[in-house]
Design a binder for these strands. Structure first.
Lengths: 342, 342
DNA sequence: CAGAAGAATGACAACGCTGTCATTTGACTC
DNA sequence: GAGTCAAATGACAGCGTTGTCATTCTTCTG
């Protein structure tokens, strides 16, 4: 049926091993041999058989993306970014949605890594921030890259990509302050997401920097959901002293807050300003559109994937020590109507 | 490292071939041998190596989901449904987003099928409705299952799952009529999606059935996007005779229409009723929430996958003739505030 | 220009499984 | 109890690649 390494070798008049060297870029092939082999590959439209590769080689060419996140847009963007990088490097992607709060989540992940012989894992929050998960993976020698909230270089030099939620939250809060708001509410997501913690810290830091008081009753804890937005805004607007602006931990909460405000007949942004976080497509589609922070999720995912692949290569070549620098992404402030005072 | 078929065989005191028979459910193993082997498998926590299986066997255990659809919620639900079924049957899933309008889309799909040695493909609209794609796949002998809009059994007996958009659209339209609307606008999505055609037919049929006139100027063509909703509603509301209700071909358009109406200060649902289609999560989150039709996307996906797997098994066993009956799903009307007249 | 050292290439086993076909086992017949 | 036949099991090759190690070709040295 399709070409094999053998047919390519015959065509090029070399041994299969040499063809193998060419397709693996081992670099120890003479230029003209390489050209001959490459020509044969192109001619026959040869594609290495993944199964055989996986079987024969020590490592294989499948990465896994394990996630527990209800945000469809986030996941899709992640997948897009990961896939781009995977394709560019001849890797495949296995996706594995799961429930991070399940009691045997670790077994589940380990099981899939094992049965699919994954070369490595891409972890996004909250999984990337669960110590039990990470240590189990370390113990089993499973390679992974983490996407997580933070900005400090990790001591370990582990492969990771950071998102500086603190700074972005700081900027959003500052934007609200500059609009003249002094009483600003904060609606948090799940506290097991580091991003929530960081965003809240950024929020608090901005208030402090501008000499504004912290009102504990203005901070509501919830989940990254529309429903949280709806109920939280009710709570906030029922306070004797109401905030004039609200910073919601993500767009979904913000959309819920907007919905809740409208239910009560509160005008946004005139009476109440609302800001979200994430720049989900629908943050543009609410009425009014939401001020938010734009996170290049697909770029982050791509970067994470390339980091993982690099670390995989490094291990293969034995120079396992060489740490790969973590890249830090800072979400950008996007100002829209939901916070614009006329 | 992990257990192999050989270690299991030794443990159970049988040959590797017998173990192979057990894990493949070939049914020609004596009950007590089977029990011994099964015990060894459990004991060693043996998982067959997929790469070896794929390499040795004629067919392999990876399905592909190829899609071109900007709707993140749809894709996520599809993936969820497919994965459920895959896991239950020991298959893996490879996802492949693509651009259906690309000129070499066929080559791209064929290439990935080839290089990943896919056992079969799951196709959703618009790819599942592109004759060129289907015929190329047929020609190459690639197995696939289609998810598409329609209701008639396909002559060919090909594996497929149908969604009866016609009937659902009919119901939505009828609902609007029952609310007293006589002048109803229709905003269409891409016409290369069969769903658009079917929904429009259902719309027209309902009008006809209730003796209402068709107003060509009330039908706007666009894409399945928020933007289409925004601009279309402007067009409709600028007509000398305006519709009092609008049926948008999906929720995203409907959300855009709602946005557009609000921009013009038009009250929904009092002055204008708006209905969508799909029951996307955000159809619940607009203000007011959208009347829509609920499509059990994950169930549809799951059914499609099981159909594909069945057909794969049938081919393996040689009884390729036996056609698998196509299941038809009818989206259900979900009435919310966007069409409720007080 | 012989010899050494390194670069380039090749031969061949191994990876873990399934397919094919041969062999053994067991049940049933007369 | 020998003979028959089907059911159960096993031996072994082969899937397409990579890893290991041996071999050959180059280039450089003195």
């Amino acid at each position: 049926m399709s070409a094999t390494i053998k047919s390519v070798a015959e065509h090029a008049g070399v041994s299969i091993k040499t063809v193998s060297r060419v397709i693996n870029n081992e670099g120890t092939v003479k230029p003209d041999t390489l050209a001959r082999v490459q020509a044969a590959i192109d001619l026959l439209n040869y594609k290495p058989n993944k199964a055989a590769r996986d079987l024969a080689g020590r490592d294989n060419y499948v990465l896994g993306y394990v996630y527990d996140n209800p945000n469809a847009y986030y996941i899709i963007d992640m997948q897009k970014g990961i896939l781009n990088e995977c394709r560019a490097n001849g890797y495949e992607l296995l996706i594995h949605p799961c429930d991070a709060s399940s009691h045997d989540i670790i077994q589940e992940i380990l099981g899939m890594v094992d049965s699919a012989r994954l070369a490595g894992l891409i972890l996004s929050p909250p999984l990337s921030e669960m110590p039990e998960v990470l240590s189990s993976l370390d113990e089993k020698g499973v390679r992974y890259v983490r996407i997580l909230s933070g900005s400090e270089a990790l001591e370990s030099g582990q492969p990771c990509v950071l998102v500086n939620d603190f700074q972005a939250a700081y900027q959003i809060t500052e934007h609200l302050i500059q609009q003249g708001h002094r009483d600003i509410g904060f609606i948090a997501g799940e506290k097991q997401h580091n991003s929530t913690i960081e965003r809240q810290k950024g929020f608090a830091a901005a208030l402090a920097a501008h000499g504004l008081p912290q009102h504990p009753e203005f901070v509501i804890e919830g989940t990254y959901s529309f429903g949280t937005g709806v109920t939280s805004i009710e709570t906030l607007l029922s306070l004797p002293k109401k905030p004039t602006a609200v910073f919601a931990c993500n767009d979904e909460i913000a959309a819920g807050a907007l919905f809740g405000a409208r239910m009560r007949g509160v005008d946004v942004p005139q009476t109440l300003a609302i800001a979200g976080f994430e720049n989900s497509p629908f943050s543009r589609q609410t009425f009014p559109p939401l001020t938010t922070a734009s996170q290049p999720t697909d770029k982050i995912a791509q970067r994470a994937t390339s980091t993982l692949i690099q670390s995989l290569k490094a291990r293969k070549l034995g120079n396992d020590k060489q740490a790969i620098p973590a890249q830090v992404f800072v979400p950008e402030l996007v100002v829209r109507e939901s916070t614009k005072r006329s």
